[in-house]
Design a protein around this nucleic acid. Sequence first.
RNA 1: GUCCACGUAGCUCAGCAGGAUAGAGCGACCGCCUCCUAAGCGGUAGGCCGGAGGUUCGAAUCCCCUCGUGGACGCCA
Length: 577
Amino acid sequence: MDFRQAVAKKVSELTELDLESVNRLIEIPPQEDMGDFAFPCFALAKTMRKAPNMIASDLASSDKLQESWLSKVEAKGPYLNFFVDRGAFANEIISDVLSKGTTYGQSEEGSGKTVIVEFSSPNIAKPFHVGHAFTTILGHSLSRIYEKLGYKVVRMNHLGDYGTQFGKLITAYRLWGDESALEKDPITELLRIYVKFHEEEKNDPELTTSARENFKKLEDGCEEEVALWQKFRDMSLVVFEQLYKRMGVTFDNYNGESYYAKMADQVVSMLKEKNLLVESEGAQVVDLEEYGVPPCIILKSDGTTIYGTRDIAAILYRDEKYHFDKNIYVVGIPQALHFKQVFSTLKKAGYECADKCEHVGFGLVKFQNMKFSTRDGNIVLLEDLLNESVAKTYELIKANAETRNSDMSDEELREIAEKVGLGAVVYTYVKAGRERDIVFSWDTMLDFEGDTAPYLIYTYARTRSILRKAKEQGFTPAASGSDLLNKLSGDEEFACVKTIADLPDAIKKAAASNEPFMVSRAVAQIARSFNRFYNNCSILGGDDAELKTARLSLCEAVCDAIETGTYLLGISVVEQM
RNA sequence: GUCCACGUAGCUCAGCAGGAUAGAGCGACCGCCUCCUAAGCGGUAGGCCGGAGGUUCGAAUCCCCUCGUGGACGCCA
């Protein structure tokens, strides 16, 4: 049973307000001692022509509020406060988690629906820095969250593999390229010649011409140019895929811009047919005044297509192929206007799928006041950040292992360090609302205390450790549905159960708002409430064997909940650390 | 100039389809390991929720104005 629903139903019966509006009004009291659910009576004041305080106290005295699952209902000022029966509540929630394990929080709301998540989308031949991590981590997490809710998710990596810069790269490679360096470390080598190109270009206009010609050849499908481009693309992808594999990130396809470029002509003819193209300063654009946005450029004045055209082509392609119910773009906020233009253009052309597209923007990753810039060289590679984090974690757990006389092998220590170290980095990207900027600092990235992934993982590991010890001593958790679970009614136990109960709703909200931090916040609350319990009550130490098994069930449920939540964020837990 | 975000504790952030005494984490200070992992826990200090007005029984939350910061404003993506 759902306690909130039950309370709403009760209020609805007492007041003759419909269930839905009661549900909207019900809130969680700000203080623990005010109860678990509250119904504010202001809304009734007008119709009943009575003071809210009076209404609340009248309602509180109703004998219809005698229920086994309610321990107390009292009026406090204008509020009607409900206290659930702690034992019954704990039993309900913990039983649910124990029976579901890490499928806890799963739902069918997305069953039969397809959502496309476009994310990561790095540029070929460019280094993958901590800025790219934002879209990668967010998109990965959102994909898992949607899957949890039953959606079919298609992960798309819209690679930046098209454009004039490839003409430049081809020219540069032919002049200064080093084959062996390319084999060894492709991105570094490609970046080196790319930077050199820009330096030399200032004094040598012929380079510009050559680059333009090479891009033209590439577009026209000239064999040698295409082969080089393919080589740069393949080699870059190998590097990216190593990183993705390390982070557990997967994609259903890597159809980049070049893939959709082929379809751009169809977009042009479609828009032309519908008489939506108008000439403006030499370019062909779609006027979007009725949508309150500047025109969308479809053809540049030289007659070639632009990225907006390719984005439109991509949407039409995806609509046809996947019949998506949602098509989300995990791309930085600076591109908000661009997406508005693209979606509005489709809308104007009469495509319903335009309304199913959504830009999920996120803030900037920056150094104090500077923006990351490949050209200026003030970037931090994601790989370096991960390595630092893992290295620091390794030192910590190695020291811990020594003081605790643990028998973990060095290999095990490194495995744990990898998971915890990566988790720490991932968490810094999903701990706050996505539209917030992240000011990059080694100190915060490598801070493992407080609201961090290591804190969550640590809580999990410590709890697993208790469960292991209990097993050695012959104690096992009380089973789902056992009456013993009603014993979990102490203040700390109850508070912890409540945080676990909140997780499924947090997952739904995370999907609805495309905000993974709804999940990270919920998991952090579970960990915090459990640690409070852990510090106040001895789980294995007590004399009451029944209470002990009930508490072990709470441990088990906490582990399931943390593992569920961290998985959705793209963070792995470890059994000990 | 136009448009869009944001401005909450020293710092990083929650809270904002209006509601009870505005919450966390970090940092600071003070405590807690003969006891299940101290990457933990408790406590103290710290707020005219950028400013002014309006709507309302009630505003951090909604509206208007203002200041500040950041971003976007056609042939790059």
